[in-house]
């Protein structure tokens, strides 16, 4: 029996080469670390990363160490996109057209602080890949509310009594309004899909925007082993559907849902939603349904 088993070949759905090393400083069960691991598998060695202040500027390690095998440029908080544009222009000046320049920012550096630089780069259609890994608050500085924080969530600046009562900013719609060649959403619960999207974005010229959903166990007050489960559930209950937008108009849905699951189970797995009453959960479900219908109608109109 065991002899037979030994002969079986292992088939891996992702390439075995690792550009991210062990020993980095991410928390247990970090979604952002997983996102970087999958993205670098797709990007390969010829990559330059521009990382503003975010979790990843800490995870990477202190000077003179780095846990990644690719060059990283640590830039100021609001300059992720514009630094990447500059690095790309510099590389083009010395005749290097192969290297992919990636701006790798968190949700604070994309939705709030970095949006002017990102909008400028998108308007000029600079040849960069902008990746936003979204953990839905300023986790690095101690769980402060950002404009990516969803309705109803607890953070240190929106305590239970005054929880966030505004919806999450629709970043894909903002980027679609810039008419850039490629926009996609991805989740660490679907690594093959993420890998495919990064590979696709790598070969496109112009500004590409990738929004990766990356759970944060300490900030969301969830268990560290639930990271992948949460990032899979969020797709299945259509809070964060996986889709692509090409040139701001052509919508493609990647994970088609036969049956939309209720948001209840997803919310109950996280301590940051513990205070929500039935009425508020019903409101969240209603909002999710409305957004999902809107997305489906956009999908129909573009095909």
């Amino acid at each position: 029996m065991s002899q037979e088993k030994k002969e079986k070949k292992m088939t891996l759905s992702l390439p075995e080469e690792e550009l991210m090393g062990s020993g980095h400083r991410a928390c247990q069960g970090c979604g952002a670390a997983l996102a970087m691991r999958y993205a670098l598998k797709a990007l390969g060695e010829k990559t330059v990363l521009c990382i503003p202040a975010c979790c990843w500027s800490v995870i990477d390690g202190p000077f003179p160490y780095s846990s990644l095998d690719v060059p990283i440029y640590h830039c100021a908080f609001e300059t992720a996109a514009v630094s990447a544009s500059g690095v790309k222009a510099g590389l083009e000046m010395v005749g290097d057209t192969e290297t992919t320049v990636v701006a790798w920012a968190g949700d604070g550096g994309t939705f709030d602080i970095g949006i002017q630089a990102l909008s400028g780069a998108a308007e000029r259609n600079d040849d960069i890949l902008y990746v936003c890994y979204d953990n839905e608050a300023y986790m690095n500085t101690g769980i402060q509310r950002s404009s990516a924080t969803p309705y109803g969530a607890w953070t240190t600046t929106t305590p239970v009594k005054h929880f966030k009562n505004r919806p999450k900013k629709d970043m894909e719609a903002i980027m679609a309004a810039h008419r850039i060649p490629y926009i996609a959403t991805a989740s660490v619960g679907y690594p093959e899909d993420l890998f495919k999207k990064v590979k696709k974005a790598k070969d496109i010229e112009g500004t590409r925007f990738l929004h990766i959903y990356a759970p944060c166990p300490p900030g969301w007050r969830s268990r560290s082993e639930d990271t992948v489960k949460l990032s899979r559930m969020v797709v299945q209950n259509a809070i964060f559907p996986l889709y692509e937008i090409e040139w701001g108009e052509k919508y493609t849905l990647n994970i088609k849902l036969r049956e939309k699951k209720p948001v209840d189970d997803y919310l109950r797995m996280q301590g940051r939603f513990r205070h929500l009453t039935e009425k508020e959960i019903a409101y969240i479900q209603e909002e999710v349904n409305r957004k999902w219908e809107r997305l489906l109608s956009l999908m129909d109109r573009s095909n």
């Binding site: 030994k6 079986k8 070949k9 292992m10 891996l12 075995e16 690792e18 991210m20 090393g21 062990s22 020993g23 980095h24 991410a26 247990q28 069960g29 970090c30 979604g31 670390a33 997983l34 691991r37 166990p217 268990r223 560290s224 082993e225 990271t227 992948v228």
Partner: peptide, 25 residues
Amino acid sequence: CPDVAISIENERPVVDYVYCKGCGL
């Protein structure tokens, strides 16, 4: 594995306890 602590040796997974943070994923 977020810590790249599981490697494949002889077609079997092997945990590197030097780097495993014990997240349970």
